[in-house]
């Protein structure tokens, strides 16, 4: 049962790989990489159950984070051509004060 799920997940990963290689549009590739990462996280969890060792889940947890950071970096890279621009301004202290003063 777990083995069947592992095979299914691997099939899904290979399909994602196909999309990544063929992807005409740039954003198809971003999508393919991102969902390849999520499927790998799931595969790691199921696989660590298959071999009976609990350590694979740590790696799954780690890669869930890394995948998010990677995708955000890619998107910022294409959206703003710069990694250092602020995606969203934290309301700086004076605006909060102004907002505070107003309300």
């Amino acid at each position: 049962m777990i083995f069947a799920t592992t095979l299914m997940l691997m099939g899904a990963m290979t399909l994602m790989l196909a999309r990544l290689l063929r992807g005409p549009e740039l954003y198809d590739r971003v999508l393919a990489v991102n969902s390849f990462g999520t499927k790998t996280v799931l595969f790691l969890c199921v696989f660590s159950f298959l071999i009976g060792r609990p350590d694979g889940v740590d790696i799954a947890l780690l890669y869930a984070l890394m995948n998010f950071i990677g995708t955000i970096a890619i998107l910022k890279f294409f959206r703003y051509r710069a990694l250092d621009v602020a995606l969203s301004r934290m309301p700086s202290r004076n605006t909060r004060k102004k907002a505070g003063a107003k309300s």
Partner: peptide
């Protein structure tokens, strides 16, 4: 920290 820099800017 890199995620923080990506979202709130490297200056932050």
């Amino acid at each position: 920290v890199i995620l923080y820099a990506l979202i709130f800017g490297v200056d932050a």
